[in-house]
Amino acid sequence: MNPIKIFKAGNDAENNAAESIWYENWLLLKKNRSAMFGLYIIIFFVFLAVFAPVVAPFDPYLQNIDLRKMTYFSWPYILGTDDFGRDILSRIIYGSRISLVIGFFAVSISLVFGSLIGLISGFYGGWFDRISMRVIDIMLAFPYILLTIVIVALLGPTLLNAMIAIGIARLPQYTRIMRASVLAEKEAEYVEAERSLGVGNMELMFMSILPNCLAPIIVQATLGVGSAIIESAALSFLGLGAQPPTPEWGLMIASAREFVSNAWWIVTFPGIAIVLVVLGFNLLGDGIRDVLDPRLKD
């Protein structure tokens, strides 16, 4: 009997399917309704951010003293105006640019540096591992909003510094997750197998082990974008992030908080925007986790 005929038998149905694990995971994720809902929310806000000048009815900085604190549904100001007469809807649309950039930028910092430190620590161990883990322990000993505030205070209160601070303060989590997965993955037989074929440390670390450790990091990063957005809003609220007149959502809430009793919409709509975006990232993150690590489901 010829072997080729035989091997076809069990596998013909998936013959042209050169499906990577990522593609299969995407198919599973597509079936997860709440994750998809989260993704749509994110896409919606990304769309707003990218096309803000087209979508927004007004210039977000344009003040109009005559039209201050217009209530919602007062045409053409759909969501009303704030205490300087600026269109709230336009400010929220422009604000999505800032929030998303903050989210992605802060997460990129912690993702890249945190993972890198975790990867090296886990792979090599030794003195680098000992030192970096102690530093991480110290960072984790701080309440983490305090740590963020301390870093911003040191760097100076600007939006960029707020992003950097959030990124640094969240970095230990990524390091820990990455280190733990690397330690587990390092023991897998394929690592030994590749070593026996003469594969060097760099290729082992970045080409072989890293791709297998990405799953929990991706989950963490997705959820992290949401929390970074909340934190930057919090920092702006405290006056440590974006400075007026930037249309940043947290700042919008902060500067209008005294009107909450007579013009609640000025505070509420940016708040809803924050909730929606964060919800989007959380739903998506949870969905990705379900797909990548079914054990964590319940």
């Binding site: 035989i6 091997f7 069990g10």
Partner: peptide, 20 residues
């Protein structure tokens, strides 16, 4: 015995050992 255990998802109404 040549071949592999068939995928149970694709098994028909016949004898499951037929392919091998």
């Amino acid at each position: 015995i040549e071949g592999n255990v068939p995928n149970l998802l694709e098994i028909g109404s016949g004898c499951p050992f037929e392919s091998r």
